[in-house]
């Protein structure tokens, strides 16, 4: 429901409410894709850190020697993408995590994580588009 002022509503989202909702697989200290909760969980020095798909811009991988590098780009102000339209930031004066790069020798798993993130993002964008069309 629009407020008639032409201000785009900021969509609220939250990955988890309680600690026991984290999947047990975070114990392996590997990147986890939790499709059910639309969230990627990355290990940061022993801490499982969730990022909701709504904060993610894209993911890409590059192979170098024995490693596959996975770069996850997150949405932040000043990136020049959909600047005027699709990126209302709840707090534009906050600090933002803009990207995360991981490397792993587990090349196939990293490739599959990268595909999952891309797929999840595609579906989330599609859903969001449909929601907007319904509103119009």
């Amino acid at each position: 429901v629009g407020d008639g002022k032409g201000k785009r509503q900021i969509k609220r989202f939250e990955s988890y409410k309680r600690e026991n909702q984290l999947p047990t697989s975070v114990g392996d200290l590997k990147i986890v894709v939790d499709i059910k909760n639309q969230t990627i969980i990355v290990p940061v020095f022993g801490r499982p850190v969730p990022f909701h798909i709504a904060t993610i811009k894209n993911a890409s991988k590059t192979e170098e020697d024995d490693f596959t590098y996975l770069r996850i780009n997150l949405l932040s102000p000043g990136q020049g993408v959909g600047r005027k339209d699709d990126l209302p930031f709840e707090d534009p004066n906050a600090h933002f995590l803009r990207s995360l790069t991981y490397r792993s020798t587990d090349n196939n798993r990293i490739a599959s994580i990268c595909d999952s993130i891309t797929e999840m993002k595609k579906n989330a964008t599609k859903k969001e588009q449909e929601r907007k069309e319904m509103e119009d």
């Binding site: 200290l29 995590l97 803009r98 990207s99 792993s104 587990d106």
Partner: peptide, 19 residues
């Protein structure tokens, strides 16, 4: 180093700091 023990190693983080 803690990072060397991890399977998926964190290589880099980038932050956006306004102002």
């Amino acid at each position: 180093k803690k990072n060397s023990a991890a399977v998926d190693q964190l290589v880099e983080m980038r932050f956006y700091v306004p102002g």
